Computed example of a mutant assay.
Amino acid sequence: MTVVTLQPLGIIAGTGFADLDALGDATTKGVDTAYGTTPVTTGTWHGLPVAFVPRHGAGHVVPPHRINYLAIVRALADSGVRDVVAVNVVGGIDPDLEAGELVCVDDFLDLTHGRIGTFHDGEGAGGVVHTDMTEAYDPELRRELIDAASSAGVPVVDGGVYACFDGPRFESPAEIRLAALAGGTVAGMTGVPEVTLAVEAGLRYAALSLVVNPAAGVRPGEPITTEEIDAVLATGRPKVLSVLDELVHTRSVFA
């Protein structure tokens, strides 16, 4: 008899998603990599293996510019993950986006500075490696996410550009205008270099962005407040989890 070992689905999430209650038999352990140790929670969801990493650590203590993205991506790859679904909480650059909407992004703008954004540092046998980012967000995995949202009855915007800033401060109105001119749809602080590292590691990566506020200056006179963000997170989190639940459920049916 042939025993088939299912590859775990990787899930990386940030603000408002410090845990996944749906995981059964969940255990957390540190996964050692050449870039540091990352706690990875493994368990099952609809009978399928899942490897979950909260970007900001337990208790949301790691700010976006200090997240060890290299260790997170390498830990998931070393745990046997092939597909990674990321959840990001973002501000809406596109004025048509309302708080609470979901966007399945398909491109990015890297407006960060000082972050280590590659596994290829020019040393060792690999030398200098140039990785194609034309389809950094895997089209097939994106389609799975969008189809799962449709089945769950959750509207999702198909396509958008994630403009990544360093944080942890919010962006200035001028920075948002600059990102808008470059085609940015949503603004966040964690999507890059996470996506680029995933591509370098040979992982299929897709991201679901939850819009929690208009970005700075999009609606003049409306400041960004944590109270506003928390209120949207309270209603948006169940929608995101329902999409993930349907994605995992669909995969379990066809496993």
Results as ranks from 00 to 15, higher is better:
Gly202Leu: 11
Val240Ser: 03
Arg204Lys: 13
Val243Tyr: 02
Val192Phe: 13
Ala231Thr: 15
Asp230His: 12
Val232Phe: 10
Thr225Pro: 11
Val218Asp: 08
Arg237Trp: 01
Lys239Tyr: 01
Ser242Ile: 01
Val243Gln: 02
Leu244Ser: 02
Val211Pro: 10
Val212Asp: 00
Leu203Asp: 08
Arg251Ala: 09
Arg251Cys: 09
Leu233Val: 12
Ala207Glu: 13
Leu197Gln: 06
Thr225Ser: 15
Thr225Trp: 07
Gly236Val: 13
Gly221Met: 10
Gly217Ala: 04
Val211Ile: 14
Leu244Trp: 00
Val218Ser: 08
Val248Pro: 00
Lys239Glu: 12
Glu228Phe: 09
Asp245His: 06
Ile224Ser: 09
Ile224Tyr: 09
Ile229Ala: 09
Pro220Trp: 00
Arg237Val: 15
Asp230Glu: 13
Thr226Phe: 15
Arg251Val: 07
Ala215Ser: 15
Val232Arg: 01
Thr196His: 01
Arg251Leu: 06
Val211Gln: 13
Arg204Trp: 05
Pro193His: 11
Val195Trp: 06
Thr226Cys: 06
Ala215Val: 06
Ile224Thr: 12
Glu227Ile: 03
Glu246Leu: 01
Val212Leu: 05
Val248His: 02
His249Lys: 13
Val212Glu: 02
Asp245Glu: 12
Leu197Phe: 10
Val248Cys: 02
Arg237Cys: 12
Ala207Arg: 05
Tyr205Arg: 08
Ile224Gln: 12
Leu247Ser: 04
